[in-house]
Design a protein around this nucleic acid. Structure first.
Length: 599
DNA sequence: ATATCCTGTCATTAT
DNA sequence: ATATAATGACAGGAT
């Protein structure tokens, strides 16, 4: 956790949030260089059970990330990884301050406004692909004039307080011009000024411009609200996922109609238009009172607010203070322990060795994460268990965090539940519908522990629980069965993964051996050709030599009667060709005579 | 309707 | 002796 906190202060978490907001999954773990490997869970998602056995990383991995062989989101994953590598290749922005503010500035060209609204249906990547690379992002600065043609330019402005305080940077100074980001959908504000984002987060190739500016002093109303996002990256991902699902389901539903597009037309970038990207979705839930409300006008999209409401993020406006406090290591400690947004909640790290108290939230969190992958089904359900049964108050955010931080799955086998937006009624019935058999049994037997708790608690603790809680025989049996089944389920998953690894390894071995066989056959054919050529040369040479020799009768020697052999001593010997047996002993005598003559 | 795959579970054995 | 891991086999649901 110390490493994570250190990372917090380095601002890279904030960078992760920024990238995740625009659809780029950021691998924090890779930056940590193994210091805090459990952070890999941010991307691993519910399949993280395999991380408990290191050998699983040998297969179905992409840069160390487990990839389900049938994962339909591989394209997304690869694209995200590619983009991340691209960003990395441009260098790591240094944020000397522990506080980092990000401002998302958006401009929609008047002429293209309507088209851009339509383009958010699915043309985002095409437009993105046509965006010229290496565009000078300074042209998007508020004082750089109006944007020509490209209606969906977004400038992300990063502010680092101490940097500006020390005068290390001047206004609008370009720190690291990654790319410009053309959003498929413009961002708008509602009449009250709150930010509304219609951006298609499925867009996989956004390009960012990182600018450093000291305009924070110019936006006092924003700086207080939209400061460091800190641990808010999980809600951001939640929002992103929701946006994706919503847009995917009802493409165009959230689009601004043509007449609204006119209202949301050309929006020159003004200092007041800078909206806190880091505060998203926080800025979305807290009224933005900056001077941009009039300039942005119209184009209200309530979708984001719907998402936020569904996510239970209404209180995130107050989260800013928590997030700021996260910069304090001590406060961060408390935050990690008490907040469902703690990094460890998604880390999948090993169980804390010192956590023997069942009511220890950190222990529970870690253990949960350690077993998060053992079942996507149990995963979400068991987390729900905690919210209802566990003495620890794991907030709803834990559940959301887990669900949305994982790679977009897939399906819940046996349940037919897919990851898609649920209506309020559906979500209300989610808990009841997803209870596993063991969970139902445990609830029926009034066991005070969730299935995950029962499965993941250390054996000493489990035995102590069995002894100290005065359980009935039936309850003890059920506890043992739940623990056995849970562990066996995880073991079965590992076993199957291992089997697949073995199969894959054998297939690779077969391919390798086939390639080796092909290579050897080619070498054999080549050798045969060489031998044939050499033989022909020898024959030619033999004919040439024999033609220069004469027998006792003065006749030239012919290859059909004589041959040349190279002896062990290097001397060339003329050897008469073997005659058929009919020649009998006379032939042998002739040979001997000729040999004698030759020598 | 059928085949195939995935996952949970049980039984058994190994550690 | 006990707990747990590993694994084959089976069942049931999903695709």
């Amino acid at each position: 956790m110390q490493f994570a906190k250190k990372y917090f202060t380095d601002g890279l978490i904030q960078l992760t949030i920024l990238l995740s907001l625009i659809g780029v999954r950021v691998d924090i773990d890779s930056y940590l260089n193994g210091y805090y490997s459990p952070l890999i869970e941010i991307n691993l998602g519910p399949s993280s059970a395999y991380t408990q056995t290191p050998f699983h990383s040998l297969r179905d991995t992409l840069d160390g990330y487990s990839v389900h062989p049938k994962c339909p989101e591989l394209d997304y994953f690869f694209a995200s990884r590619r983009l991340l590598d691209e960003v990395r290749s441009l260098g790591s922005p240094r944020f000397p301050s522990p506080q980092l503010n990000a401002w998302l500035v958006h401009q929609v060209h008047q002429a293209d406004c309507g088209q851009k609204s339509d383009s958010s249906n699915g043309d985002a990547e095409e437009e993105d692909s046509t965006e010229p690379e290496g565009r000078d992002v300074r042209e998007h600065l508020p004082d750089s004039g109006q944007e020509e043609g490209d209606s969906s330019q977004v400038v992300v402005v990063l502010e680092t307080g101490p940097c500006c305080d020390t005068g290390a940077c001047d206004g609008s100074k370009l720190v690291n011009p990654f790319h410009t980001l053309p959003l498929a959908s413009p961002m708008t504000t509602n009449p009250s000024g709150a930010l509304s984002c219609r951006a298609s987060f499925t867009q996989l190739c956004p390009r960012l411009s990182w600018l450093e500016t000291d305009r924070q002093r110019d936006r006092p109303g924003l700086s207080g609200q939209c400061s460091s996002a800190g641990a808010g990256h999980r809600p951001v991902q939640c929002l992103q996922r929701r946006c994706e699902s919503r847009e995917h389901q009802s493409a165009g539903r959230h689009h601004v109609p043509a007449h609204n597009g006119a209202a949301a037309e050309h929006r020159p970038i003004l200092p007041g238009l800078a909206l806190g990207l880091a505060a998203l979705p926080f800025a979305s839930v807290c009224n933005y009172t900056g001077s941009s409300s009039q300039g942005l006008g119209g184009g209200l999209d309530e979708a984001v607010f719907d998402h936020i409401n569904q996510l239970g993020l209404e209180g995130l406006d107050s989260m800013d203070q928590q997030l700021l406090s996260c910069l304090d290591p001590q406060l961060l400690e408390d935050f990690d322990s008490d907040s469902g947004l703690s990094l460890e909640s998604s880390s999948g790290g090993p169980a804390s060795p010192g956590s023997s108290d069942m009511s220890s939230s950190s222990s529970l969190c870690e253990e949960e994460c350690g077993a998060t992958g053992y079942s996507s089904e149990v995963d979400s359900k068991s987390l729900l268990d905690h919210t209802s049964w566990s003495p620890v108050d794991l907030s709803e955010n834990v559940w959301h965090d887990h669900s949305y931080a994982s790679p977009p799955p897939l399906t819940y086998p046996h349940k037919g539940i897919k990851e898609e937006p649920l209506s309020d009624e559906e979500e209300c019935g989610l808990e009841e519908r997803e209870l596993s058999r063991d969970e139902v049994r445990a609830r029926a037997m009034c066991l005070p522990f969730s299935v995950l708790q029962i499965v993941n608690m250390p054996v000493e603790e489990f035995l102590e629980v069995l002894d100290s809680h005065g359980f009935s025989a039936e309850q003890v049996t059920l506890l043992r069965d739940i623990r056995r089944r849970g562990k066996n389920k995880l073991a079965a998953q590992n076993c199957r993964k291992r089997k697949l690894d073995a199969i894959t390894g054998l297939q690779e071995e077969v391919a390798r051996l086939q390639a080796q066989r092909d290579r050897l056959l080619r070498e054999k054919r080549l050798t045969a050709k060489t031998m044939c050529a050499v033989g022909q040369q020898i024959q030619q040479l033999t004919r040439d030599v024999l033609s220069r020799l004469r027998d006792p009768l003065g006749q030239p020697l012919t290859p059909d009667r004589y041959s040349l052999q190279c002896g062990a001593n290097g001397r060339v010997v003329l050897v008469p060709a073997r005659r058929p047996a009919v020649s009998g002993a006379s032939g042998n005598k002739t040979d001997k005579r000729k040999k004698g003559k030759k020598q």
